[in-house]
């Protein structure tokens, strides 16, 4: 026999199903939020000691070893980073700090790995999988690399690691005897295929220590084209720790880039590699998604033009939703009426 308790359960169950179907949330975020403070004037794009950074509250973000996809990192050396954000309505700057007793900024020898840090933003509404996104849920990744930072001052090559090395000869190039061949020594660039193909790793001059990438799941990490590399960076190691600044214009016209607006909320996550621990590729320490809120008044939204073909269609998606919700309210009212007629 139907009792009141059964009816209540059915009503709650059906209400839950409707809320889940229409993706109406009932729980708000409880996690920590990183605030991008709005400041006036120039941002400290290459000065981690600037007092302007003290206007942004640092958030400590815990990291854990990447144990999801091979190659795994079994034990993380970097357990947390602190992050601060500033923006001036034109540019955004992110300062990431973490403790690292060794300064690893060379990958010339095969046994050497660099220190590096990456920040990641979803390119969809909501939060895709926090490790490199997922199919249908791309992420934009900014990857700062210590060796790229060192390359800006002076491009590192084998001579830096092995000062007494001697080269017999290079085919198709004529460097001075015993010296390494530089790109300028090649008259035909096709003998330097990576450089000819525009591979960032082979570029003669580094303009930024940050690689701008896009990913949509494991194994899908893709470098954006050289002309779309628009993230700047600066890193400095001192007193057993790195301080790295990422910077970019707030908005970007590129579809594989995140665009920010004052007053809006986003998600951000972090990854750190400790070179002296042999960390590279998937062997890294990662964070979960962290809410990111940009200070400032949001700009007025553009008025959306009506979709083509929507004119003359009475049963729009919005109306269908309200009809369904109305029907559900009627069911609730009918249930409430039946409730009073049933025994306890």
């Amino acid at each position: 026999m139907l009792k009141r308790a059964h009816l209540i359960f059915l009503l709650i169950l059906s209400l839950s199903a409707v809320l889940a179907f229409f993706k109406v949330p009932l729980a708000s975020s409880q996690g920590l939020t990183l605030i991008a403070r709005q400041v006036q004037g120039e941002l400290p794009l290459s000065d981690p000691d600037s007092p302007l950074w003290q206007q942004a509250t640092a958030l400590e973000v815990p990291l854990s070893a990447q144990n999801v996809a091979k190659p795994l990192l079994l034990e993380s050396k970097v357990r947390a980073i602190t992050a601060r954000l500033l923006h001036n309505q034109a540019q955004v700057a992110i300062l990431v700090e973490w403790s690292d007793q060794t300064r690893d900024e060379s990958t010339v020898r095969v046994q050497d790995f660099r220190d590096s840090v990456a920040v990641q933003f979803p390119l969809i509404e909501g939060q895709p999988f926090f490790c490199m996104g997922q199919q249908g849920g791309n992420v934009n990744i900014w990857h700062w690399k210590a060796d790229w930072q060192a390359d800006i001052l002076a491009r590192q090559d084998m001579e830096n690691a092995y000062a007494d090395m001697y080269v017999d000869q290079y085919p198709f190039a004529n460097p001075p005897p015993g010296k390494l061949a530089s790109a300028a020594d090649y008259q035909d660039r096709n003998y330097l295929p990576a450089l000819a193909a525009g591979n960032l790793f082979a570029s003669e001059v580094r303009s930024t220590p940050v690689e701008d990438l896009v990913a949509g799941g494991f194994g899908s990490l893709t470098t954006q084209l050289p002309e779309f590399q628009n993230v700047q960076g600066f890193g400095a190691w001192a007193d057993g720790g790195w301080r790295v600044i990422f910077s970019r214009d707030l908005s970007s016209q590129e579809v594989e880039d995140i665009s920010f607006s004052p007053g809006k909320s986003y998600s951000i996550s972090f990854a750190v590699w400790d070179g002296s621990n042999g960390e590279r590729n998937g062997q890294k320490s990662t964070s979960q998604w962290v809410s990111l809120q940009f200070e400032g008044a949001p700009s007025a939204p553009a008025v959306a033009a009506p979709a083509a073909g929507s004119e003359g269609t009475w049963l729009t998606k919005e109306r269908t939703r309200w009809i369904l919700i109305g029907a559900f309210v009627l069911v609730i009212l009918a249930g409430a009426f039946i409730y009073w007629r049933l025994p306890d």
């Binding site: 920590l32 403070r37 003290q54 509250t57 958030l59 400590e60 602190t82």
Partner: peptide
């Protein structure tokens, strides 16, 4: 949870 929230609200440098 309240400590970092208070730092944010008071605009302290933290963490």
């Amino acid at each position: 949870q309240i400590t970092p929230a208070a730092y944010q609200a008071a605009r302290l440098a933290g963490p």
